[in-house]
Design a protein around this nucleic acid. Structure first.
Lengths: 328, 328
DNA sequence: TTGAAAGCGCTAACAG
DNA sequence: CTGTTAGCGCTTTCAA
């Protein structure tokens, strides 16, 4: 910028005025400055700008489990849309459910002075350490609650969704219903597991612990678990799969075993409608979760000082076939 | 930092030393400083640090078409893995194939002084404007070439993949093979279309223009096109779908029409193996493309000054069923 | 309408 | 081992 000023024969401040489109610059002066800018290929340094302005970096941080998981990438898209409208960029990072990695990301993002943080909190770490790092930066939690009751949070109705799924299977006559869920540390997994148990209890069906497989975190793990379940002496006639990855794993195992096992999955999955037996799911809108969280954050960044928001997003059962298969 | 220095009764520079883990600080002094840091909740300001150091922001920009499209989100994951290893964060943005949006993103990212740029270039804008903005920032192009022959580029073997797909259908006896491709401005779409034509020509099959539908950019558009094709007086017995979204659209239309139309799709899609008729695809590794591009960029950032790299990633045909359906 | 000076928060270079 | 000084590139404040 100094060079531009020299080239245009004006002061630093005048260049600054032109670059920022402030008024009170004579058109011909402005023209000369713009020429110099073009000639020198000058680009304003946003770091210096933000530093001096004491202002915003016009960026937000997004910490999710895995950018490549469609559930999270849809969230990311919703977040981006809102951030864009607010003139902000999104710096996203995958925590891979590793608390150390999460803390590292939070620290990096805060040190970069992002205007705010959107976090799907990993749940195996120490919540206080996280809270300490975040201190001062507006933050909204998605998909899972933070420990902090004062934090804005956007969740899905996990309990209700899971109950609906299992109710549906019970209504179709199933009594031996398996349950595949993620790591027990993860809030959504616990909620969905609980929803499963509650639905059974509400129908007076005795839960069989042998039919529950927790701690399945990927497609392969879910596949193995499902294969084992199907090999039981008294196998389940139906299964509730606790998320998109587990649904895929369960479907593969059922396909390989060649059984007519009913299935309802939590999260919608691409092509679910085109499978040999189209997949019944508990659907919801991840992009909407991202949008709502980002909007909440936007408000906080702008200085909103209302009470903590806690949004619960609805789910809906989409019956496509796999959930309507009758028992054996 | 000033406050920390005051609280600890030391100079600014000493605090800086402790924060940055430099040596030559007496343990008890360091301890006092660390106490003050913890008490005051101090966090180093990375903007100031980078500004003064004249150094890197330890971030890279990633511009793709849509974060939520699995093809791109897998790329993003590959990029992130390499960036992480290099201690960098990824700022990603969706251009939505809009050149204005792309330029805006490039400008924002350069003004923020990202260390480098990874770009899937939209192809409807002016390449010179893009080049001007990028000037000075290392950049690598993915999936599509930039106009610039001096630019590092990582591409998939679109031509070869498309030819393989159509060869496969021809080998199974098809002669009326439809072709669904994206907007003709897009490099990959043109290449895949050309591969289709070349395969037909190589087998001495006369191409029927009525069977080619270009300019399909989403699932719905592909669905409509496919429905029209199937309604022709002399419909195709097979179709080559030019990308993941078009494959999904075509599958939906074929499913709705209830025909036994053969299909080979470019890009692999989740659950393709579990469809009523499992989907034969031209598969490749998007994450690997992201990784390779990020590694190239990492090299440039570190000062690599070799000749421009141009990497062509292989594809492979995964025969699962839909590509092996014989003609009607 | 323009410019000079001060300073954002930090680190590099050089003293002590 | 610790402190002082200068300055990264910009904007803010005040003066001309």
């Amino acid at each position: 910028m100094r060079d531009v000023a020299a080239a245009a024969g004006v002061s630093l401040k005048t260049v600054s005025r032109v670059v920022n489109g402030e008024s009170f610059v004579r058109p011909d002066t402005a023209e000369r400055v713009r020429d110099a800018i073009a000639r020198l290929g000058f680009q304003r340094n946003d770091l210096a700008r933000t530093l001096r302005g004491g202002g915003r970096t016009r960026s937000i941080g997004l910490i999710i489990e895995d950018v490549a998981n469609p559930f999270y990438s849809q969230i990311a898209r919703g977040v981006e849309d809102v951030a864009r409208a607010g003139g902000r960029l999104v710096i996203s990072g995958s925590s891979d459910e590793d608390p150390a990695r999460e803390l590292l990301l939070i620290r990096s993002l805060c040190e970069r002075r992002v205007d705010g943080l959107l976090i799907v909190p990993s749940q195996t770490g120490d919540p206080r350490r996280r809270a300490e790092l975040i201190a001062g930066t507006p933050a909204v939690f998605l998909d899972r609650p933070a420990d902090d009751p004062a934090a804005d949070t956007v969740l899905i109705d996990n309990l209700g969704g899971a109950r609906t799924a299992v109710d549906h299977l019970l209504a179709h006559g199933h009594r031996r219903i398996a349950c595949l869920v993620d790591l027990p540390e993860i809030f959504t997994a616990r909620q969905r597991h609980q929803g499963y148990l509650e639905a059974l209890a509400a129908h007076g069906v005795q839960a069989d612990p042998a039919l529950v497989r927790t701690g399945r975190h990927d497609v392969r793990g879910a596949g193995h678990a499902m294969t084992e379940l199907l090999a039981l002496p008294d196998p389940p006639t139906a299964v509730f799969a606790g998320n998109n990855l587990l649904t895929v794993g369960a479907l593969r195992a059922i396909g390989a075993a060649g059984t007519r096992t009913a299935l309802v999955g939590f999260d919608d999955v691409e092509l679910a409608d085109l499978l040999a037996t189209p997949v019944t799911v508990i659907a919801h809108e991840p992009a909407d979760m991202g949008r709502q969280a980002a909007e909440l954050l936007e408000g906080r960044i702008r200085g909103d000082t209302g009470p903590p928001a806690r949004i619960l997003l609805p789910t809906r059962l989409v019956a496509r076939g796999s959930g309507e298969i009758p028992p054996g």
